[in-house]
Computed example of a mutant assay.
Amino acid sequence: MGLRTFRDAGDREWRVWDVQPDTTNDVRLRTLGHLPAEMAGGWLCFETEGEKRRLTPVPEGWDVDDPEALIRLCLLATLVVRAARPISTDASG
């Protein structure tokens, strides 16, 4: 797994790394049951404060691309929307 950092046009610092799932040893993936087919071969994870994105498939050479190429890849990546935590309706507190 490589790790890179870059700054976008808004001067936000991003970290990007490749994820290669190991469904036989990763408890989270076994619990979920399966990965979507497009993620089975891995993905790039882009993360900055308050935002996360994923890009599939992992582009060849991403780890040696210049920062502008990483910015373009980040813009192509899909925003990860985290599920909201359920609100308790239990009135007993």
Results as ranks from 00 to 15, higher is better:
Leu29Val: 14
Asn25Ser: 11
Glu68Gly: 01
Thr89Gly: 01
His34Ser: 12
Gly33His: 03
Asp26Lys: 01
Glu51Ser: 14
Leu70Trp: 13
Gln20Leu: 15
Pro86Gly: 05
Gly61Thr: 09
Leu79Gln: 10
Gly50Arg: 13
Pro21Gly: 04
Asp66Thr: 05
Arg15Asn: 03
Glu38Arg: 03
Ile87Tyr: 02
Arg82Ala: 12
Leu55Arg: 10
Arg28Val: 13
Leu55Val: 13
Ala9Leu: 09
Trp43Ala: 10
Arg7Tyr: 02
Gly42Val: 03
Arg82Leu: 14
Thr48Asp: 08
Asp90Val: 03
Ala69Asp: 00
Leu55Asn: 12
Gly61Gln: 09
Gln20Trp: 12
Cys45Glu: 06
Glu47Arg: 15
Glu68Asp: 12
Gly33Met: 01
Pro86Lys: 07
Gly93Ser: 00
Gly61Met: 09
Glu47Ser: 15
Trp43Val: 11
Leu73Met: 11
Gly41Lys: 13
Leu70Met: 12
Leu73Gly: 00
Gly10Asp: 11
Trp43Ile: 06
Leu70Val: 09
Val27Gln: 06
Asp22Gly: 01
Asp66His: 07
Thr5Asn: 05
Thr31Met: 15
Pro86Met: 03
Pro67Ser: 05
Cys45Thr: 04
Ala83Phe: 06
Asp22Lys: 05
Val16Asp: 02
Trp14Gln: 05
Cys74Pro: 00
Asp65Thr: 07
Phe6Met: 03
Cys74Asn: 09
Val81Trp: 01
Glu49Trp: 10
Thr48Leu: 13
Arg72Lys: 12
Leu73Ile: 02
Phe46Cys: 06
Val58Tyr: 06
Asp26Gly: 04
Gly41Trp: 07
Ala91Thr: 07
Glu51Phe: 10
Gly61Trp: 11
Arg12Phe: 13
Lys52Pro: 00
Met39Ser: 12
Glu51Tyr: 10
Arg4His: 01
Asp22Ala: 05
Ala69Ser: 04
Thr31Tyr: 13
Leu73Ser: 05
Arg53Phe: 08
Val64Asp: 12
Leu44Glu: 07
Asp8Val: 09
Val27Cys: 02
Val16Pro: 04
Thr78Phe: 06
Ile71Tyr: 06
Phe46Pro: 01
Glu51Asp: 14
Asp90Gly: 04
Thr24Gly: 02
Ser92Lys: 08
Leu35Cys: 07
Thr78Gln: 12
Cys74Gly: 10
Asp8Tyr: 10
Phe6Gly: 00
Thr23Val: 11
Pro59Tyr: 08
Glu47Cys: 15
Gly42Phe: 03
Glu13Trp: 08
Glu51Gln: 15
Cys45Trp: 06
Leu44Gly: 09
Arg54Ser: 05
Gly42Arg: 01
Asp66Trp: 04
Gly10Asn: 08
Val80Asn: 03
